[in-house]
Amino acid sequence: MTVMQHIWIVLGVLFVLLNIAAGLIWVERRLLAMWQDRLGPNRAGPLGIFIVLADTLKLFFKEDWIPPFADKWVFILAPAIVVGSVLMSFVIIPFAPGIVVADLNIGLLFFLAMSSLGVYSIVLGGWASNNKYALLGALRGASQMIAYEVFMGLSVMGVVMLSRSFNLIDIVAAQENVWFVVTQPVGFVIFFIAGIAETHRLPFDIPEAESELIAGFHAEYSGMKFGMFFIGEYMGITLISAMTVTMFFGGWLGPAFLPPVLWFFLKTFFFIGLFILLRASLPRPRYDQLIEYGWKILLPLVLVNLLVTGAIALWLKS
C-alpha cells in the first residue's frame, strides 16, 4: 500500500466514524422515541436529521466555561483523552479486506490497552472539576472500569484460542465457516456486557447517573468540552459494536450480494441499535450490585468459559 492510500484510509475511517458518532445523536433520539411511542426529533430537516447540525452548533456556541475552582489543565485534558483513546482503538479494526488503518499482530491487546486508557478521562475529569458529585462519579467510573476490564480481556481469550491469533484480520478469517458466537456464546455475552460497562452506557451509566450524581464526572463541563464526552460516548458504542462484530459475528463476512464493508456496517448498526434498546428498556442497577455482579458472577463464569474452551481446544487438537 502506498502512503497516499494509507492517508486516504485514515481520513476515510475518521470521516465515517465521526459522522456515525454525530449521526447517532439523531438515531438514538429517534429510536428512543419510537420505543416510547413518541416521534422524537422531526422538525429540523427531513425526518429531523438536522438536529445533528443544530445540536453540534449549539455545543460549539455554548459558553466554554472552566470553573474557577477547577484544576484548569487537567480539566481541559480529560475530554481530549476520551476521544483520543477511542479513536486510537479504531486503528486496528478491519472494516473489510484491505480497509484497516494498522494491521497489528497484537491488535486485540492494543484495543484492550486503548479502551483501558479511557478511564483516565473519567478520573481526571471528575478530579479536576473539584466538585463532590464529579469526584464520586469518577470514583465509581474507575472501580467499574477496573472490574469489567478484567473479564473483558478474559472473555475474548476464547476467541484468541480458537483463532490462534491476536490479529483481528486473522480472527475474522477464522470465522469463515462458523461465527465465534456459535462456538463462544458465553464469551460473546460477557464481552457485550463488559462493553456496555466500558462505555458506561445505560443500564451501567453509574459514573454519570443523572438521578443520583447529576451527571457525575462531567457535571462541571459545558460547551464543546462536554461535547467531547458526548461524542466520545457515541464513538465508544460504535467501537464496542464493531469489536463485537469483528470477533463474534464474522466481521465483513457475509453472502456476496453485498460488499463486505456494507456487511460490516450492517452488523455494527444492529449492535448499536441493541445498545439503544438496552437504554430504552433496562433500569440502572445499584452501584454495589454492579460491582458484585462483575466480580462474583461474570468473572468466575468467564474463567470457566476459558477453561472449557481450552479443554475442548486441547481435546480437538489431540
Partner: peptide, 18 residues
Amino acid sequence: HLRTMWLVFLHLFHKRET
C-alpha cells in the same frame, strides 16, 4: 431482562402518542 427488551422493541410498531 430479555423479555423487557423484547416488549420495548415491540413498541416500534405501536401508535405514536405525539
